[in-house]
Amino acid sequence: MVENRTSDQVLRDLLYLACPDAHPVDRKTATDAIDTAVSQGRRLDPAEIPALVNGLLPGPVYGMLDADMTDAGLRGADLAQVNLVGADLSRADLRDANLSGADLTSADLTHADLSRADLDSARLCSALLVGARMAGANLNRADLTDAGLTGADLDGVNLSSADLHNARLHNANLDGAYLRDADLTAADMGTVSLARADAGGANLVGTHLVGAYLVRAELSRARLMGANLTNAVLCAADLTGADLTRAQLFATDLTAADLTGAIGIAPASLSGVRWSSDTNWPDALLHMELLSISEDLGNGLYRVPGPGGARAVNPDRTPFA
């Protein structure tokens, strides 16, 4: 019978399952503490959980492999180095939690709240984070290879040196995110919002950025070889020194963008591109060639011949006059 079981009773059973080889004395100490909380009619403080689990295991790394923690209330919990491979943490409250070094490979964190959580060096390979709230989280050096982050809120997150190879970030919010030196090779970032994000030096080789919003984004020295930037908005973006070799720039908006020192740009790859008199091209020769073939839209705006084209927008997302 499982109906009417409290979260503390479920946790007690999870501890038994996760720690079958623990010494009986240590295991009894942990479960007695949980039973005491139950008898007193109080919820177990998330801060008590790590101490109980640590008492059951011989080393610093503990875990709840494949545990069902749906809707768990773990705000502020210290779960550093925890093994949560395959765990179901969908809709869990993990705000301000310490998950540094945790292994969340293939974990389900769909619609979980990880706002301001510390996930430094955490493993999230193939984890599901669809619709997760992660604003202000620290994911420095985290491994998010093949992770599903569709529609996730990653506003202001720290993803410095993180591995997002093949990650699915379609329609995610990464405004103000710190992605310096991150690996986003072949990631799906279609219609993602990266306004004011810092992706300097990031690896974006073969990345899908169709319709992405990159206003005022920092992309200096970014490797964008073979990236698909069709219909992307890069108004006032910093692309100094970026490598755009074989990048698809069809109908991209480069109004007021800075491409000083960028390489791999050729007029043939700029069909339908919008630009402005204050767009900085890599060299004067390219500037003059584009000026000679572009349609003058007025107000210092130009469009390279070609079908379609995203409507030029100001950095505040309002259309240019």
Rank of each mutant, 00 (worst) to 15 (best):
G200D: 05
R196Q: 09
P282Q: 05
L249W: 01
A187H: 04
A217N: 05
N231C: 07
R196G: 01
E295S: 11
G226N: 07
A172L: 10
R196N: 09
G200V: 09
N203F: 07
A256T: 08
G211C: 12
Q248D: 12
A227P: 06
D253H: 03
L285H: 14
S294V: 08
N299Y: 15
G226A: 10
T245W: 13
L285E: 15
M288A: 15
D278H: 14
A222T: 13
R196F: 04
L270S: 02
I293R: 14
A177Y: 01
S271M: 13
S269Y: 09
C235L: 03
L291Y: 07
A242I: 10
G190M: 04
G200Q: 06
G200M: 02
A172G: 12
Y213V: 05
V215E: 00
D183E: 12
G206F: 03
G190A: 10
N228P: 06
L291M: 12
L204S: 04
L285Q: 15
A197H: 04
G190Q: 07
W275G: 01
D283F: 11
A268D: 15
G206C: 06
L234D: 03
T207R: 00
L286V: 06
T260H: 10
A262Q: 05
A232F: 01
V233E: 04
L297T: 09
L179P: 01
V215H: 02
A236W: 02
T240H: 07
R246M: 08
L297F: 13
D296E: 15
E218W: 09
D253T: 05
D198F: 04
T255D: 04
G298T: 14
N280C: 09
Q248G: 11
M189P: 03
D181C: 08
R216W: 02
A227L: 07
A247W: 01
Q248M: 09
L194H: 03
D258C: 11
G264V: 10
A236V: 03
A172D: 06
A199C: 13
F250L: 13
H208A: 08
T230Q: 05
T191W: 14
A256V: 08
S277C: 07
A222E: 09
N228E: 09
H287I: 07
L214C: 13
A217V: 11
M288S: 14
D283M: 08
G201T: 00
L297P: 07
G176H: 06
L194P: 02
A186Q: 09
T252L: 04
R221W: 13
D296G: 12
G226C: 05
M225W: 02
A257L: 10
R216H: 07
L249D: 05
N173D: 15
G298Y: 14
A242P: 03
N299F: 14
T255H: 10
S276I: 08
R221M: 12
P282Y: 05
N203L: 12
H208F: 11
A202P: 05
L285I: 13
R196T: 07
A232K: 00
V192D: 02
S269G: 11
L291N: 10
D253R: 03
N231D: 14
R246S: 14
E218G: 12
A284L: 11
G226R: 04
D278Y: 09
L239N: 01
T207A: 15
